[in-house]
Nucleic acid binder design. Structure first.
Length: 567
RNA sequence: GGGCACGUAGCUCAGCUGAAUAGAGCAACGGUUUUCUAAACCGUAGGUCGAAGGUUUGAGUCCUUCCGUGCUCGCCA
């Protein structure tokens, strides 16, 4: 039940015989910012007046009369300049609305269920995750929970870049660490092309323990098996980091596997057929490029699909570029036939999106791909920029984050901002147990509600008597009901924009209203929930608390943040 | 130089795809507790929405230009 949507449909239905409506999507029922403009507001006079060049107020009065004839839900209907109709509900309507709040409240009635492919994280399997990855990971996972909540089927996918030069460098690094462990005189070489991190030593030790390779004398002879083992170890580390954040992917797709299946051949055939392939020389980039020389390369005509320049598919030694293999991977995705594809990329891949859009559009015009960026995370401690780990160089590791603040705080705070704005993450604030910490604030609301449930000896699922709900008539109680009824709208907005930060925002607002309500009982005994002479009112208020809790629970389950019974 | 983001209160950010008087939190100042969990609540103050044009009945939101910040820019993945 989404009251805004419900009344939008009702209103449009009532006026469509008397007005010619060209574009019904512009006719919107919304919640006015200012409560003096009513509970819900309809913009039809404004929209229809501009279509028909007539006086919006006259149209408004006509619509008002049409609505009055068939609906008895409103205490007052006002037509106001510049052309809104503002509706004030009768109090019994609020009671009726809150009564209809079900366990799955927020989930739309009409579900257009899709099978969605959601690719996120996809960090190179060459070491542990850092905090930047965490944001994309949490964002992707939360989007998944949201899309599932509204009735979609979602496959969480991780693209494993287990092919190419970076992997070779990584495996060499593991190799030299093994050599170092076996013979302390053979020090790990200082080489910019190797990975120096200590975790490589850990991986080396794990591989030695497995004892699958007997002889390490020659890198080339052990390379294949060592590559397999190293990637396996690196992926284990990544999965462990993700699990600590409550994240589990459904499927891991190997780049190496895509290459071996020669999917790229099919892609090249398609490109040839479309005349999107040619040999050519790219212009010199305008930025600082050292030792640039013109080079004849196999190019993909991506400018045809909105890219800025055409993109090379082959290197000068005729091996394929990463982008070429990535096209093959996306073709593989398309072949698996999902209804919608979502790809969460890190901030350093912003420049890559146009190319991917061009690629996917060229390979299949009927499939929709959405690309979302998860922006960088800036770390602070007590308001000052902060670097946490010397061990990992400039990066803060995922493991350090989850160990320091825990899964719940990490997830809530990383979801709290729009994914394409940089995020300041303050360690002290997240550990703080006060209202300054939004995670805590929402959890505390749930703990308070639970304490009432315990004392009243009910469970959230218990059915209470609803015949006293009309006793809920104070402003704060009506405002709480209104806030609860906003939830389905928050869900739909989040789905439409694939932005999940509104969910923690909303939960904070709802919690705030609840804490206000709770505190009224401190100064005015009439507002106490349990210690109240009117037992019927208590029953009604506990019912309201159940509904608040239902919304908090649904919201927090999308965020995958725990709601404690007690704090 | 090109591309993509971002620029809203002292700080960190929302702003529902164009609507009515621009909203929160923190910080500042003042108040509330013989606790149904004060880990909370109430109040005050704080703004030329980066700048200038444009479209529109209407712009924080759309378009253009400029300024600032970040990421990125042919054989890295």
């Amino acid at each position: 039940m989404n009251i805004f949507e419900t009344y939008q449909i009702k209103f449009i239905d009532l006026i469509k015989r008397d007005f010619s409506i060209e574009d019904s999507e512009k006719l919107i029922v919304e919640m006015p910012k200012n409560s003096s403009f009513g509970d819900i507001s309809f913009n039809a006079p404004l929209v229809l007046a501009s279509m028909n060049k007539t006086d919006p107020i006259k149209i408004g009065e006509k619509i008002k009369n049409l609505i009055l004839k068939s609906l008895d839900d409103f205490e007052k209907i006002e037509v106001v300049k510049p052309g809104f109709i503002n509706f004030f509900f009768k109090k019994n309507k609020w009671i009726e609305f809150i009564k209809n709040v079900q366990d799955d409240f927020g989930k739309p009635e009409k579900i257009n269920s899709k099978h969605i492919n959601l690719e996120f994280v996809s960090a190179n399997p060459t070491g542990p995750l850092h905090i930047g990855h965490c944001r994309g990971a949490v964002y992707g996972d939360t989007v998944c929970n949201l899309l599932k909540f509204v009735g979609n089927k979602v496959t969480k996918e991780y693209y494993v870049n287990d092919y190419g030069n970076q992997i070779t460098k990584f495996v060499k690094s593991v190799y030299y660490r093994i050599i170092e462990i076996k013979d302390k005189n053979k020090k790990f070489p200082i080489d910019q092309n190797l990975y120096p991190g200590d975790y490589v030593i850990d991986i080396a030790n794990v591989i030695l323990k497995k004892n699958k390779i007997k002889n390490f004398e020659n890198f080339e002879t052990v390379q294949d098996i060592l590559t397999e083992l190293s990637i396996e170890c690196a992926l284990e580390i990544i999965k462990k980091d993700l699990n600590a954040l409550g994240i589990h992917h459904d499927i891991f797709i190997s780049e190496k596997n895509i290459v071996e299946k020669q999917t790229l051949n099919t892609v090249i055939e398609i490109l040839k057929k479309n005349d999107d392939l040619y040999m050519g020389t790219l212009p010199k980039p305008k930025g600082d490029v050292e030792d640039w020389e013109p080079r004849d390369q196999l190019l993909f005509r991506s400018t045809k699909y909105g890219d800025d320049i055409d993109r090379p598919l082959q290197k000068s030694d005729n091996t394929w570029t990463y982008f070429a293999n990535d096209m093959a991977y996306h073709y593989n995705k398309i072949e698996r036939n999902f209804d919608l594809y979502i790809n969460v990329l890190g901030a350093d891949h912003i420049g890559y999106i146009k190319r991917l859009k061009a690629a996917t559009h060229c390979l299949n015009k009927n499939k929709t791909f959405e690309f979302k960026i998860s922006q960088i995370v800036k770390l602070f401690k007590s308001g000052k920029p902060f670097r946490m780990s010397k061990r990992a160089g400039d990066y803060i590791l995922a493991q350090e984050l989850t160990e320091a603040v825990g899964k719940d705080a990490a997830r809530f705070m990383l979801s709290y901002r729009s994914s394409n704005s940089p995020l300041d993450f303050d360690f002290d604030l997240v550990l703080d147990k006060s209202k300054e910490n939004p995670v805590f604030y929402v959890q505390y609301a749930s703990a308070r509600i639970n304490s009432v449930f315990r004392k009243y000896k009910i469970k959230i699922s218990d059915k209470l008597d609803t015949k006293f709900l009309n006793l809920l008539d104070s402003n704060i109680e009506i405002n709480l009901i209104k806030k609860i009824l906003e939830w389905p709208k928050v869900v739909m907005q989040s789905v439409n924009t694939l932005e999940v930060h509104r969910i923690p925002f909303y939960l904070y607002e709802l919690s705030s209203l609840f804490h206000s309500f709770w505190s009224l009982g401190k100064t005015d005994d009439n507002f106490k929930i349990l210690e109240n002479k009117n037992k019927n009112l208590t029953e009604a208020r506990v019912f309201l608390l159940q509904k608040i809790f239902t919304v908090l629970k649904n919201g927090m389950s999308i965020l995958n943040v725990h709601m404690p019974d007690e704090m």
